[in-house]
Design a protein around this nucleic acid. Sequence first.
DNA 1: TGTAACTTGTGAAATCATTCACAAGCGGAA
DNA 2: TTCCGCTTGTGAATGATTTCACAAGTTACA
Lengths: 210, 210
Amino acid sequence: MALKHIAESTVRRLSDYLRFLEELEAQGQQTVSSGELASLGGTTSAQVRKDLSFFGSFGKRGLGYTVTALSRSLRQILGLERTWKVAIIGGGKIGRALAQYHGFRERGFDVVAVYDIDPARIGVSLDGVVVRDQRDLDADLTTLAVDIVLLAVPAEAAQPLVDRVTSAGIRAILNFAPVPVQASSRVAIRSVNMALELEFLAYELVNRDA
Amino acid sequence: MALKHIAESTVRRLSDYLRFLEELEAQGQQTVSSGELASLGGTTSAQVRKDLSFFGSFGKRGLGYTVTALSRSLRQILGLERTWKVAIIGGGKIGRALAQYHGFRERGFDVVAVYDIDPARIGVSLDGVVVRDQRDLDADLTTLAVDIVLLAVPAEAAQPLVDRVTSAGIRAILNFAPVPVQASSRVAIRSVNMALELEFLAYELVNRDA
DNA sequence: TGTAACTTGTGAAATCATTCACAAGCGGAA
DNA sequence: TTCCGCTTGTGAATGATTTCACAAGTTACA
Ligand SMILES: NC(=O)c1ccc[n+]([C@@H]2O[C@H](COP(=O)([O-])OP(=O)(O)OC[C@H]3O[C@@H](n4cnc5c(N)ncnc54)[C@H](O)[C@@H]3O)[C@@H](O)[C@H]2O)c1
Ligand SMILES: NC(=O)c1ccc[n+]([C@@H]2O[C@H](COP(=O)([O-])OP(=O)(O)OC[C@H]3O[C@@H](n4cnc5c(N)ncnc54)[C@H](O)[C@@H]3O)[C@@H](O)[C@H]2O)c1
């Protein structure tokens, strides 16, 4: 199917399209055109069609796309036909917010465990998931068959934990610590850096129409 | 100074470089080469030099860059020589985590107010900032001279609040709701969509070396 | 059946971003 | 002063992504 490399920007837009399709599905809309998807996502109809064309041909000329069919195809492309098991490391402020966030479960990401190093935090229940001691981490990752690790620990703990969880076989990490972390190219890593987003906005405030 | 349009990717990398420079500064290092900055940020030395070249010429051939001087220049380019006032709308799980996050203050972003609509949430103190009624929002934005709004409200409340705060003169918004929001091109908007990040990782797990 | 109104899928063109490659500048050593 | 090792700054080349533009397919309807 996906023979050559697909741009990250394309994959991200597919996620957006899927969200719109689910909304249209809920509203009972049968078909949708590339132009309609484009305006929902702030892009162009050519972009939508090009994005989809990397994976196949899903529409009908003159008609557009069948909402349910395209929705199903996108879920399949994105690997969302199954649920994914997520472990959160760090049960502090952001780790707790993430553990209790229903938006993950709704989209097929099950938080199966939360870990901390602080005895005061261990044992606390977050929406049914009890915070465990990080000493159990390595064994648990295998036992629980965790697919994705969310890192919500202080900056200095991030890289050591990346090394640790990748040794345990983890191949996907979402890092919230404001430092770049590295791993073998077999491991997919994304970072969410909120302070950096604010700095970008500050730059825009200073430079926009200036 | 910055005459033509600068790519977003360039500005984001400048933020990264600044972080590395501050770390090097703390370690007492005097000068740094583009290659050194590149390896810290997982990029190439040519990329570092090209990024900087859009804004001027900061280094010395044969020597590299003076850490403190480049650090100061980047802060100036990014608009970080002043502090920015931030208001958070939504005092729920993620809003509270953000309000109590020290990383913002450390980088010059002062959380001056938090707003909610739920009486049970109003009046709660978060690290010295008391949650206020969203009815005070419009007036407060002017009175407090808020620069940037963080949106941490349910998806359906996001776009109405964007309209409301932009009417009140806000020109920079960081949105955490998992929906695209729109405003006039005078307004800078970024969205952080964590479920989308997980979907991207799921795609990678399914497609990497496949 | 024929035509009008739409819309897809996709090469080709245009735009945007990164990497290359090297002349030129700097500091230190002799 | 000259040479050597190192590094910047930047045009030119390459690579990647987006946009254009249009042939071809579909439906509706007279
Ligand atoms: N709070 C926010 O809104 C926010 C926003 C953006 C980024 N972040 C980043 O997220 C990370 C966590 O921030 P926070 O505000 O939740 O901090 P926090 O101090 O509230 O939580 C960090 C938690 O990690 C735990 N921890 C430390 N080392 C550990 C280890 N080796 N194994 C397991 N647990 C460990 C600590 O005990 C603590 O409970 C930081 O890197 C921070 O910069 C936080
Ligand atoms: N919790 C997370 O980790 C997380 C992660 C990613 C994204 N998000 C997104 O962030 C948003 C908030 O999530 P949450 O988990 O904090 O939800 P939450 O329900 O805990 O908090 C939302 C808060 O917004 C308040 N609110 C609603 N309408 C408002 C209005 N008009 N003005 C002011 N306040 C209003 C509610 O009273 C509530 O306190 C959602 O869009 C969610 O999808 C949350």
